[in-house]
Amino acid sequence: MSTAIEAKTIAVPEEQLQDLRNRLARIRWPDGATVDDISQGPVPAKLRALADYWANGYDWRRVESELNGWGIHRTTIDRLPIDFLHIRSPEPDALPLVLTHGWPGSVLEFRKVIGPLSDPAFYGADPRSAFHLVIPVLPGFGFSAKPSEVGWNIPRIARAWVELMQRLGYERWGAQGGDLGCAVTDEIAKLQPAGFIGSHLNFAMFPPTPDEIENATPAEREALRDAKHFWDELSGYAKEQQTRPQTIGYSLADSPIGLAAWIYAMFQDTCGTPGDAEASFTYDEMLDDIMLYWLPNSGASAARLYWEMVQSDWSSPARIDDPIRTPVGFTMPPKEAVRKSRRQLERRYANIVYFNEPSEGGHFFALEQPDILVADIRATFTQLR
């Protein structure tokens, strides 16, 4: 199997963009609304406004140029072609850092932190805090290859990322992630590969124990209420993707507004301004992400990762009886619905070197509060370099 790393360019044929415009001109909107709020999902007026901009004001070539400008590469690992961005810092002693996105995110989650992390001097920060950035595309996501066999679960992805960093020649490196990126990063930490020095997370993937629920502090009780609301009212997407990703996949592949609503709902429900996606994100930011599912037809293949997690009986490796021992820093946003307290984290991570609870931000933290995330990543790895 080849270990070659090749440059790649995204160039979407104009016919695909015209096909999208044609589909947006023929949207069949649902009838019979019985509520005028978001209790049943995104309201039609907001989706209509988003679709109108998508059809008449959105420019895909802008984001295509942005992606190509960062430098897209492809290499085959474990028989699957993996795409990744590779941004080398101008600082020769920069620390390599792999950043992993989640669902329904993409590599574009990190667009606002790429410059400050890779070239801090340009942004008025200490050049000694620089990072070489490796930002892989999760298998089945974006323009990366789609698995044609079962088994591409979180542990397998983590092993692929370790191989990728080794293949790039990085002997000493760290990792960062949120959402599913947190799961992959945790799994890397559990593997403790040679040269891995630690991680930073803005999410934590474990359920509270009965004693943590019973003995919760007031702040922890508030977080538990938020988490219960999320799992009871807002997590239908997860159940569907865990059990029937192919069923929803037909809609995600065939209907642009169906795909947009599926993803927009997550922006709306989990952002730093819950219920008001437009207060946290621009139309372009949301549509750029949606396009990385629509154009490569990756709605179904990305959804399957949830199914894979269930099939492999995977659960977070951060466990009380077997805590992660590599150094880790945390940023826990106030509007993260399933946020964790420091004392809960300390039971599962044996070496927390940094912890911050900012006053703003939600689940898509890198996109919403990039300055805080950059500062927290720097603060974490300053202690580990």
Rank of each mutant, 00 (worst) to 15 (best):
G151A: 03
D119M: 10
V137D: 10
E171V: 08
A125F: 04
E171R: 09
N153F: 09
S144W: 02
A175Q: 06
I157Y: 09
Y123C: 14
S144G: 10
V134R: 00
L164D: 09
P155W: 04
W173R: 08
P155M: 08
Y123K: 15
F143E: 07
L133C: 00
F143A: 11
Q166T: 10
A125N: 13
L133T: 00
Q166Y: 12
S144F: 01
L133E: 00
V137T: 09
A158P: 06
H132L: 03
A160W: 05
P147N: 05
W173S: 12
I157E: 09
W152N: 05
P155A: 07
A121K: 14
G142Q: 13
V134H: 00
R172A: 11
S129I: 04
P139R: 02
I154F: 08
G169S: 06
P147H: 13
F131H: 02
S118M: 05
Y170R: 12
I154Y: 12
H132Q: 05
S129Y: 06
Y123P: 08
P127V: 10
R167F: 07
G169K: 14
A158E: 09
R172W: 07
I154V: 13
R159V: 08
M165E: 01
R167H: 14
E171I: 13
R172F: 15
K146W: 12
W173Q: 13
F143V: 05
V150Y: 06
I154H: 15
V137C: 10
